[in-house]
Amino acid sequence: MMARLLQERVAFFTIVRKEIRRFMRIWVQTITPPAINAILYMLIFGGLIGSRIREMDGVPYMDFIVPGVIMMGIIINSYANVSSSMFSAKMQHYIEELVVAPVSNITILMGFIIGGVARGLAVGTLVTCVALFFTDLSPQYPLITLSIALLTSVMFSLGGFLNALFANTFDDISIVPNFVLTPLTYFGGIFYSISLLPEFWQTVSKLNPVLYMINGFRFGILGASDIPLWQSYAVILLFIAALGSVCLWLLHRGAGIKQ
């Protein structure tokens, strides 16, 4: 039993090391573009347009958008890392190295997810560093800030894994990020407070899970949010439990991997 646990531990760290090496090897494609996007958002929305808006929910507009911009980097990069890595492993068939080896499904899943979290948080950290040139960022609740970032990253890494299991072409791993994830992120209150919206659209916005993550993260940094904090945690944990269970069940069945 102990030997099995040690074996799983070695396998887990091997997958994590491989995943981190993969996105670091192509850092020009994986790490720098989100930082450049963040600079553009902060310059254009925060600096140029923000100077006219001045305040949102009682805080300077630049301070208001920064948590959302950081969160957008975390969400998109966690998702993209796992979906592209897992899909490549499927397409080039080297996922078989893991399927043939005595590695449990939960170790495989956790290895890929931690890889996605590593990239999501690396991008989040870089965007935060960039943001420090535009605003004085000092989180009101550091633990809440970190935990929301971490859990959101886990959730979207699971989403990326699920996407890759079903994907058969490169189009299949770009459809969800382009047509689902990006609109949900933009309508998730990065650049505005939902209190500005008519009541009907406020209700519709509350169906968007990304709203809960951005607002939870914003609460951690600014101490203000459109959404009660417990709701943010509840939504994220619910999604993690649901996506994690589906991924494990599909891995058990060998969906998208075995014949």
């Binding site: 396998a11 760290f13 090391r17 491989k18 080039q92 080297y94 080896a101 590695v103």
Partner: peptide, 19 residues
């Protein structure tokens, strides 16, 4: 195998998967 990985990494990774 991953065509972008080095020969050594490919073998080392599988050694790791096997504990």
């Amino acid at each position: 195998f991953s065509v972008f990985e080095s020969v050594e990494s490919i073998v080392m990774n599988v050694a790791g998967y096997n504990g």
